[in-house]
Write a protein that binds this DNA or RNA. Structure first.
Length: 569
RNA sequence: CGGGCUGUGGCGCAGUUUGGUAGCGCACCUGCUUUGGGAGCAGGGGGUCCUCGGUUCAAAUCCGAGCAGCCCGACCA
């Protein structure tokens, strides 16, 4: 491609609206432009990278039993009502009505469509297993789109759905996809980590996320430094530690804590560590108020609590609710003498003795409080978010580290959630109707573009790997001598004949502009053609990935370039 | 939805405190010179100062309301 003809509007300065590297660089490198928050147009360079990723994903998917289809973006509300997700997915969906007043949404995902698609066609166990995938734009009315393409309201996703006769079949399908994902991310050159994950609104049992470790990641991953345990902190199990228990129950006492409403405040006021305190919270799970107890130095993990309660919605209770339940303003609430509401405590509360908690009296806390003797707990479960340095729940030897990650893939064992609600059944060997057992498997195509850039850039711009680079070679003719132009054109033609994707910077720009744009858009090999080098009968080549410079003899440049290309990552 | 910040040529910003009719850098157009890491000189085009309402002789600037964007929290590929 000739750059004089390429629609490539690069920017010298970082746009004010972008503050992570990948977002800044995608705008600066002319890969995309924003239409609305989280909604982008992809320009030639950006779309080329997207297609590279799509094709790698497609090739690897086609090596499995999965077959490519294309499902509708516009979906009738009926199927969402059948699966009971019309309300549950709720505000995340863009909903609208057609002229006949029928309700529709723009597809945020395709479990309903796929289930509807197969339910009339798959009638016998002989039709199973079946696995279908598509690569398509998803639309979600995200609460807060951000970080460019990282969390968009429109994004391209590869989603696959497996249909099996039973759970053993699902395990096989899941394993097949798992392995395909490992291959895909290897080919994409992304350093990913597979972690156990929450299945969230998709429902189902097992679930793994494929995470790219990156500073700008929105998820936290807990990783054991000794075994291979790795999980999203949303569900990473907390090790049930059994500390030395102080058996001597001291007499409960009331302590004056004027205007001290937070754990931190108590820590400095009383000079006692938060681990000796009981944190009391009131949460509203759907319509039920629940009292939650945690150790003072722990954080409530809302995903764990939501899952434990099997709630659709979880939010902190209002101040009015708190006053009604505890008879006191927030800051001084505690579990003592609370009996009309369910009290759920983290495991770590069980072994606490002589602790401090709110007294349900303004400006007062109790000291020397212990469970059983002083207050009742209805249920103990794992509610805390794991922390750096926690003992690993798996091997119980290593310590957990926490790293930020970008979720680029997510696989779920859905089970029969959709097939049951939507009536997708088959007849087994005995002629008995059974629900199809399903799995779903997503890869965020556009998010991978951002993740790849996050993982590979420098001060000058993007550094593409060979397989994602929109072009492999960029030729920079410098100066305007006929000889330079002639050589550049020859190189350009030759590379095209060789089937190598090549850019020719034939713009009437100064050397500095060309160098800087070449660096910015991250083309792996740059060939500089100038009178200086032509005099010596050489081509100057720079490897963008390593920064190395080479002078190659112009007489056998084809071989040299092939060699340099093959050495690229 | 809550909290913070911001809206001024295509982009990045100043001007707002103290009202007087809009400016800088980049980009763009023309000409000349230049041409190996974002050129120089000269000339030029382009702005409902987010919107609506108010105060005033006069509003980018003051007041009110609204809208939009960005960032921090709950959602997810």
């Amino acid at each position: 491609m000739r750059m004089s003809k390429l629609y490539l509007p690069t920017l010298k300065e970082d746009p004010a609206e972008a503050d992570i590297k990948s977002h800044q660089l995608m705008l600066r490198a002319g890969m995309m432009r924003k239409l609305n928050p989280g909604i982008f147009s992809y320009l030639p360079l950006g779309y080329r990278v997207i297609r590279k990723i799509e094709n790698i994903v497609r090739e690897e998917m086609n090596k499995t039993t999965s077959q490519e289809v294309l499902l509708p973006v516009m979906q009738t509300a009926n199927i969402w009502k059948e699966s009971n997700r019309w309300d549950k997915f709720g505000p995340l969906m863009i909903k609208f009505k057609d002229r006949k007043d029928h309700e529709y949404c723009l597809g945020p995902t395709h479990e309903e469509v796929i289930t509807d698609l197969i339910k009339d066609e798959v009638r016998s166990y002989k039709d199973l297993p079946l696995n279908l995938y598509q690569i398509q734009t998803k639309v979600r009315d995200e609460i807060r789109p951000r970080f460019g393409v990282m969390r968009g309201r429109e994004f391209i996703m590869k989603d696959a759905y497996s249909m099996d006769a039973d759970y053993e079949g699902l395990d096989d399908s899941y394993q097949e996809m798992y392995e395909a994902y490992v291959n895909i991310f290897n080919r994409l050159g992304l350093e990913t980590r597979v972690v156990k994950a929450d299945s969230g609104a998709m429902g189902g049992k097992d679930s793994h996320e494929f995470m790219v470790i990156a500073e700008s990641g929105e998820d936290d991953i807990a990783v054991c430094d000794s075994c291979d345990y790795a999980a999203n902190t949303e569900l990473a199990k907390s090790y049930e530690e059994e500390k030395n228990i102080d058996k001597d129950l001291k007499e409960r006492k009331l302590i004056d804590t004027p205007d001290t409403k937070t754990i931190e405040g108590l820590e400095s006021f009383l000079e006692i560590d938060g681990s000796k305190m009981i944190k009391t919270m009131l949460m509203k799970a759907d319509d039920e108020l629940v009292v939650v107890l945690l150790r003072g130095d722990d954080q409530l993990n809302e995903v764990k609590l939501t899952n434990y309660l099997q709630a659709a919605n979880l939010e902190p209770a209002t101040e009015e609710d708190i006053i009604e339940v505890f008879g006191v303003k927030p800051g001084f609430i505690g579990p003592i003498n609370i009996s009309d509401y369910k009290i759920i405590a983290d495991h770590r509360i069980k072994n606490m003795r002589n602790a401090i908690c709110g007294a349900n009296i303004e400006d007062k806390h109790y000291g020397n409080v212990s469970p059983v003797r002083d207050f009742n707990v209805d249920e103990y479960t794992d509610l805390r978010t794991v922390k750096v340095g926690d003992l690993c729940p798996e091997c119980e030897e290593g310590k957990l580290e926490i790293e930020p990650g970008i979720e680029v893939g997510h696989i779920f064992k859905l089970g029969t959630k959709y097939s049951e609600s939507m009536g997708a059944t088959y007849l087994d060997e005995n002629g008995k109707a059974k629900p199809i057992v399903m799995g779903s498997y997503g890869i965020g195509i556009t998010r991978i573009v951002a993740a790849a850039i996050e993982q590979s850039n420098d001060q000058n711009g993007i550094i593409w790997t060979k397989d994602l680079a929109p072009y492999k070679i960029i030729i920079l003719p410098l100066g305007r001598s006929d000889e330079v132009n002639k050589t550049s054109e020859e190189l350009y033609d030759t590379f095209q004949e060789m089937g190598i994707e090549v850019l020719l910077d034939d713009r009437n720009e100064r050397a500095g502009v060309k160098f800087n744009d070449a660096d910015l858009i991250g083309i792996p090999l740059r060939i500089t053609v100038g009178s200086r080098s032509l005099e010596n009968n050489v081509l100057e080549v720079r490897n963008r990935q390593t920064g190395e410079d080479f002078e190659i003899n112009i007489d056998n440049y084809k071989e040299e370039i092939k060699k340099l290309l093959s050495e690229l990552k």
